[in-house]
Design a binder for these strands. Structure first.
Lengths: 199, 199
DNA sequence: TTGCAAACAGACCGGTTGGTCTGTTACTGT
DNA sequence: ACAGTAACAGACCAACCGGTCTGTTTGCAA
């Protein structure tokens, strides 16, 4: 049991319940009243840990959603063949995908789509996150190019956003159609394309 | 000048103003009060033409957003080479894209992302719209296959959702990063891939 | 010209929203 | 032991939300 007063764990609890709410309803539609009810925490406690709803939203985004997202995208880079590694990662992602997860979609993308044009904070966070991801993949492709594992015509700075966009698009399509097969077909197609980049 | 009382045009006006609001703010955050203010129309008039906000949302989605979307995706099919046609269409889309349009993103996708998991009506509409689009592209690829313009290994039912997902992902990435170049790079990459499908 | 429904106008309403404020309880350093 | 502050608890609030309801104006058919 956690002690009767553990500020760090109540903060964490608040964060997780908020994340759960925002996953399904989005940022704006997630009401503080619902969060408080679900978490069985008083309003005073919430406003002791977070200045306002915006700060709570930022914290959820940074500490839960972005963390999860980048962990999911943590493609093994040290493999003998990076393209194979990405393809294998895609296959694993495809197999792990459940219908429920797919219906929920990618929380980062959901919140980003909702808030990017309305809130600078969310915009900056989204931007830097995707920059990180894209450059990570671009580096991988560049080294593969140097090692002669990838065709010289490949432009890492074009292919990396392409990969990101396609995976994101696949998740969206899967979410809209509630269809696991569509999602898998798109990812398989992406893997096919990537193998054409090999020397 | 329109006559002092023209129910059809006030309905249309209401639809357009609502669309403008929902483009920027999404469905839920678009308030009726703001719409009414902007349209300079009374609440009585709105509720005379629409049963409630949901019906207004559906009408905006059907009569404005889906219409625009399918018009944008109206790729010329009768060309000599369908793959070339798609590539040319992609290029045109890439050139026409403005920074403002990109920041706003695709209204259909925005609303779909927000509402698909919360509202059956929006879900059904989104689903059938993308089904229409995908099968339209699949048919194009199938006939091209029959004509021997596309490799026999190509599976139209996989490639068509792939194309849709990638373009959608490209728009999202462009929206998030407010960057026209990323958007264009992704589309160019897609065009490259499509040309590899030619015989 | 009159009757009547369609087309609007806008005051009003209950419920919900994020946020504040005052009070109480628990821990911690001295 | 006690003081002081961090950690809560929850009543309260103004603003806003979608929606209703009553009243007025307009056009048109008879």
């Amino acid at each position: 049991m956690s002690p009767p007063r553990d500020p760090e764990s109540t903060r964490r609890h608040l964060l997780e319940v908020s994340a759960e709410e925002m996953r399904f309803k989005g940022y704006k539609a997630a009401s503080l009243a619902d969060i408080l009810n679900k978490a069985k925490v008083s309003k005073g406690a919430l406003y002791h840990h977070f200045a306002n709803k915006q700060e709570l939203g930022y914290a959820v985004f940074d500490e839960i959603f972005v963390r999860e997202f980048l962990a999911d995208w943590d493609v093994p880079m040290s493999n003998t063949d990076p393209i194979d590694a990405v393809c294998q990662w895609i296959t694993e992602m495809s197999e792990q995908a459940s219908k429920e997860k797919l219906q929920q979609g990618c929380p980062v993308c959901n919140i980003a789509t909702e808030m990017v044009s309305l809130d600078e904070g969310f915009r900056d966070r989204t931007q830097t996150m995707f920059d990180t991801l894209r450059s990570r993949i671009a580096v991988m492709l560049s080294t593969a190019k140097l090692n002669g594992q990838v065709k010289q015509v490949v432009v890492p700075e074009s292919v990396s956003p392409f990969i990101v966009a396609t995976v994101q698009g696949a998740m969206m399509q899967g979410k809209y159609g509630r269809d696991l097969e569509t999602f898998k077909a798109i990812l398989r197609c992406l893997a096919d394309y990537l193998t054409t980049l090999k020397t």
